[in-house]
């Protein structure tokens, strides 16, 4: 196969991934806390606080308790945040302040191995956070099994997509503060309007169209169907969206990073 050199990745990306695992293991006690506590806080605030006002939510013609409605969305938000923040702030610090990538480039690693390792690590963090949260949500009886087991592979696919686009931003921002921009314009709107805390149908038609352009909306749709055990062939379209998203942004991250770092 004739892959251009700037897109060639070797198995060595796993060494970069392992370096990040090793650093994560040093602080795992602290790193475990947010995904453990966050769902508890959300369920407390939104679920029990807000649901007394909201009551049940209509989802696919069914009345669903509000806590059950938001539970899969909380998982999706964790996937997005963990992957996106890892390859934006995390990778930027390693690249710009710690010069870790420069040091790696003086070894048999090529830039593509490094960036692929970082993105796969971002996806891995999404999986870890999802797994921890899922345990908590399962204890509350909010995930249905065995379908719920699909959430973990889904978190890797979603994490890979969000980590890829995060890395594209890392390749182009001049300064770390500028990450505020994609967060304000891209991540937060998805967090609020991606079918997370209220059904999309309550939005005006044009806003629904916008929402369907964004990855989190598709991810939430998938996770909610999986969490409620309502698998159907139409879900494959949403999965396809996430795969295509990665197919576009992963190579773009490699190309943009090469432009940025290789002088």
């Amino acid at each position: 196969m004739n892959v251009p050199p700037g897109l060639r990745i070797s198995h060595r990306f796993l060494r970069v991934w392992r370096r990040n695992v090793q650093v994560y293991r040093k602080t795992w006690r602290v790193s475990f806390l947010p995904p453990l506590l966050e769902p508890l806080l959300y369920i407390l605030a939104f679920g029990y606080g807000l649901s007394t006002l909201v009551g049940d939510v209509a989802w696919r013609g069914e009345a669903v308790p509000y806590v059950a409605f938001i539970a899969p969305a909380l998982l999706c938000i964790a996937m997005m945040y963990n992957a996106f923040f890892e390859t934006t702030y995390g990778s930027f610090v390693r690249m710009y302040y710690q010069k870790t990538f420069d040091a790696m480039l003086a070894t048999p690693l090529f830039l593509e191995d490094i960036i692929a390792g970082e993105i796969v690590w971002g996806a891995t963090k999404a999986v870890i956070a999802t797994a921890i949260m899922q345990v908590i949500l399962t204890l509350f009886g909010l995930i249905r099994y065995p379908e719920g087991l699909l959430i973990l592979p889904l978190s890797f696919i979603a994490g890979f997509a969000f980590a890829s686009i995060g890395m594209v931003f890392t390749a182009v921002v001049k300064h770390i503060d500028l990450f505020n921009l994609p967060i304000f314009l891209f991540v937060t709107p998805m967090f609020l309007f991606g079918g997370t805390f209220f059904p999309l149908e309550t939005l005006p038609a044009w806003a629904q169209v916008v929402a369907w352009c964004l990855p989190l909306t598709h991810l939430v749709e998938l996770a909610r169907a999986v969490g409620f055990g309502r698998l159907e062939p139409a879900l494959l379209w949403h999965l396809l969206y996430l795969v295509v998203f990665s197919v576009l942004f992963f190579p773009l991250a490699l190309v943009k990073m090469r432009t940025r770092l290789i002088k």
Binding site: R15, R18, Q22, Q98, K99, T100, D102, T107, L109
Partner: peptide, 25 residues
């Protein structure tokens, strides 16, 4: 290669810096 910057890995210990680098080779 000994680059100009002291780009050691600040998130790892002295020994780990060498061991992780060895894994790249």
């Amino acid at each position: 290669v000994c680059q100009q910057d002291n780009n050691l890995d600040p998130e790892l210990s002295v020994l780990q810096n060498l061991e992780v680098f060895a894994s790249y080779f």
